[in-house]
């Protein structure tokens, strides 16, 4: 790892100031960033820890919305987001227990790993990502593998999830990393059903619109029986072919609907 200056502000305002420095990089739970820095694929000159900012931690519920502070760990969400059980279960299935004790929702969503779980939860829920300077809907936020609309130095302070009528997330593990080989989050709202898929596409998390239409009309696994997922743009690697992932999208969507 290249040496850097470590700073740990206690307010969002101080963190924003610290992140204005040349080569500054925000550190959330560090479960992905730290290994990346060991490989020297990330080489910040200032590392700004967001782990000391109390105002970015915790789960609150109100008005049919669950709001999670950006620096809240997966373990905390798993335990405290019971108002949105599918989301709590998603958080409880990320990584392993020690990773969940450290990794955060803000870090996961800002990183937008194409196989991460939270982007699927956020996109399927039509979540609102709140930063130090604006609110962004999930539909506008994710921009392909590891890409988001976040500006440099912009911090996710919280994420708000409208609680659906029914929802479930089904993850098929990539067996080595325990990220999603493919994961599907299905959420049924009064206005319709949203289906978000992670792990499968070269373009990162995406909504499966055909399934959404079918499920909005009939929320049952059989509703998608006639649909086909194209393997075009799907990831192909040693863990699964594009065709296999396309197949999984449909299988897991059906399972998520049944589980919801």
């Amino acid at each position: 790892m290249i040496e850097f200056e470590f700073v740990k502000p206690s307010t969002v305002a101080d963190a924003v100031k610290a992140l204005a420095a040349d080569g500054a990089q925000a550190l959330s739970g560090g479960q992905t960033l730290t290994p990346t820095m060991k490989q020297r694929l990330a080489t910040p000159s200032v590392l700004v820890s967001l782990n000391g900012i109390a105002e970015m931690k915790g789960v609150t519920v109100g008005g049919g919305v669950v709001t999670i502070g950006g620096a809240t760990t997966h373990a905390t969400v798993a335990k405290e987001a019971s108002a949105y059980p599918a989301l709590a279960r998603l958080a409880g299935g990320i990584g392993d227990p020690a990773v969940r004790n450290r990794g955060t929702i803000g870090g996961s969503i800002a990183n937008n790993d194409p196989a991460a779980c939270y982007p699927a939860g956020a996109l399927a829920s039509g979540a609102v990502i709140v930063t130090n300077k604006r609110s962004i809907t999930a539909d506008d936020f994710f921009k392909g593998m590891f890409a988001t609309v976040l500006d440099e130095g912009e911090i996710i302070t919280s994420v708000s999830f409208p609680v659906p009528l029914k929802a479930a997330y089904v993850k098929f593990d990539q067996p080595a990393s325990r990220f999603a080989l493919t994961g599907v989050f299905v959420a049924q709202y009064a206005g319709g059903v949203r289906v978000a898929v992670t792990g499968a596409s070269n373009n990162g998390v995406f909504r499966w619109k055909e399934a959404e239409a079918a499920l909005s009309a009939n929320f049952s696994a059989s509703a998608i029986a006639g649909l086909k997922v194209s393997p075009k743009d799907m990831i192909s690697d040693l863990h699964g072919t594009a065709e296999y992932r396309a197949h999984l999208v449909k299988v897991l969507t059906g399972r998520a609907v049944s589980a919801a």
């Binding site: 067996p175 080595a176 990393s177 690697d237 040693l238 863990h239």
Partner: peptide, 28 residues
């Protein structure tokens, strides 16, 4: 069921970390 040391055609090791080389875990 799980483990495979895989090189691509350029001789790069594709399964060169625990992110891609599947070690048996307790729940496997």
């Amino acid at each position: 069921l799980l483990e495979h040391g895989v090189y691509d055609e350029n001789g790069q090791l594709l399964s060169g970390s625990y992110m891609d080389y599947t070690m048996p875990r307790a729940d496997d």
